[in-house]
Design a protein around this nucleic acid. Structure first.
Lengths: 222, 222
DNA sequence: ATTCTGCCTGTACCAAAGGACAGGCCGCCA
DNA sequence: TGGCGGCCTGTCCTTTGGTACAGGCAGAAT
């Protein structure tokens, strides 16, 4: 993946669906993309709902979509489309570069993320790469993504003893005290002791909240 | 970020710490990096524990580290180092390209991820970019990351009714039945009813497991 | 008009969870 | 040596959680 796929004019063209709420942008994209012999813009949509219909009707290979739209936003639309056609690939082409938007879009199944303003060659190449099974993020986007991933504060949450950590893992699997006791070969009473300690340290009112908090700080193997 | 930072030979060089369990690799890296006037390899380490000591003692700008190591692996070491020096930046340089490793490393705070075998120019450029505050992933690595993010199966888990979804959210905050009842203005008995339905659909034996499972399929606002 | 489903409620009963209080064993460290 | 922290155990008691069984109401579908 990510290898350079050369345009091959004689092969079947890559079928594209353009989704953006601004007609001007759609026209512009269509014009730019038409210059490439291996691309074919098969449809346009002005919002998420239309996009879903068009995607179902015209079977594009790749959807090029904006995120901010009336009616139904890009992420929701993308989820729908991919639920219907898991093989559909998508490139987000938008002005938004916040980490939340990026993560949302990628989770929804986008294989590419380009910011509006990207040079057209970069857009062309992204389409070909994604069509070839690869994926492509602009470096800026990758940076944002990494910032988002890198854990904000490994601090702030109290230290757990090894034993507490063990108990926490089993707790997260929904085992009850008796079962945990059996698993760790200690008495049920001791398990209660550890669970209480755990709840205290995690500032949880009960075991369920403790697991939720632990999951949030992902110190638990779900 | 990610702009090209040109080498400036007269400026203070970028201080590097090389961490790899193979002496040969360390030697090779040191030799390659020495060809660049703006780099200074200030130390080497053969495992995570050494790396932490060296990082504390010699205050490198950037750590170049392998993941697979005896004594203490790269991820654990990186977490430690960044806990002590949050400004420290790190580039993972390894042969492993599984999505789990990549995500682990990035979560631990790495700003770059290169596979061994990357051309040296790419390595140089990565170091400079990361030192300049940016971050850099090889396209292959970015692809893996995207695959990992894209949700595997929005299906497979049963449909929840709107009411059940509400209850689930509150459940995940650790509220108990009585509190949920108060919140939703229904009887505690009804809450129990919904919780049971929830556990049935999620195939959980108790509320704690239900929350864990829900978190796993991230259908819960933690 | 009937059926189905989501949503709501009740009583009764038993198992599990969690707090209060009290204590023992071991290894580390000043 | 004494103190401290992690770990383990116990009894007693109250509050929650969860199941079983039984039923009502409203809206949508047929």
């Amino acid at each position: 993946m990510n290898q350079h796929t050369e345009p091959s004019p004689d092969a079947r063209p890559i079928r594209l669906l353009i989704v953006d709420d601004h007609p001007v942008v759609r026209d512009g994209l269509r014009a730019i993309l038409s210059t490439q012999p291996d691309f074919a813009v098969v449809a346009e949509a002005g919002n998420g709902r239309e996009a879903i219909q068009q995607a179902a009707a015209l079977q594009p290979d790749i959807v090029l979509l904006d995120l901010e739209m009336p009616e139904m936003d890009g992420v929701a639309a993308l989820q729908q489309m991919r639920a219907q056609r898991p093989d559909l690939r998508a490139i987000v082409f938008t002005a938004f570069d916040t980490d939340e938007r990026i993560v949302e879009a990628l989770k929804a199944g986008a294989q590419g993320y380009l910011l509006k303003g990207a040079p057209r060659q970069e857009l062309f190449s992204a389409i070909r790469v994604v069509h070839g099974g690869g994926s492509l993020l602009q470096p800026v986007v990758a940076s944002r993504l990494i910032e988002h991933l890198s854990q904000p504060s490994p601090a702030s949450l109290p230290e757990l003893t090894p034993r507490e950590t063990e108990v926490l893992q089993l707790l997260a699997r929904g085992l009850q005290n008796k079962e945990i006791a059996l698993e760790l070969d200690i008495s049920e009473r001791t398990v209660k002791f550890h669970v209480s300690a755990l709840m205290g340290k995690l500032d949880a009112g009960n075991r369920t909240e403790a697991v939720a908090i632990a999951a949030q700080h992902n110190l638990v193997e779900l």
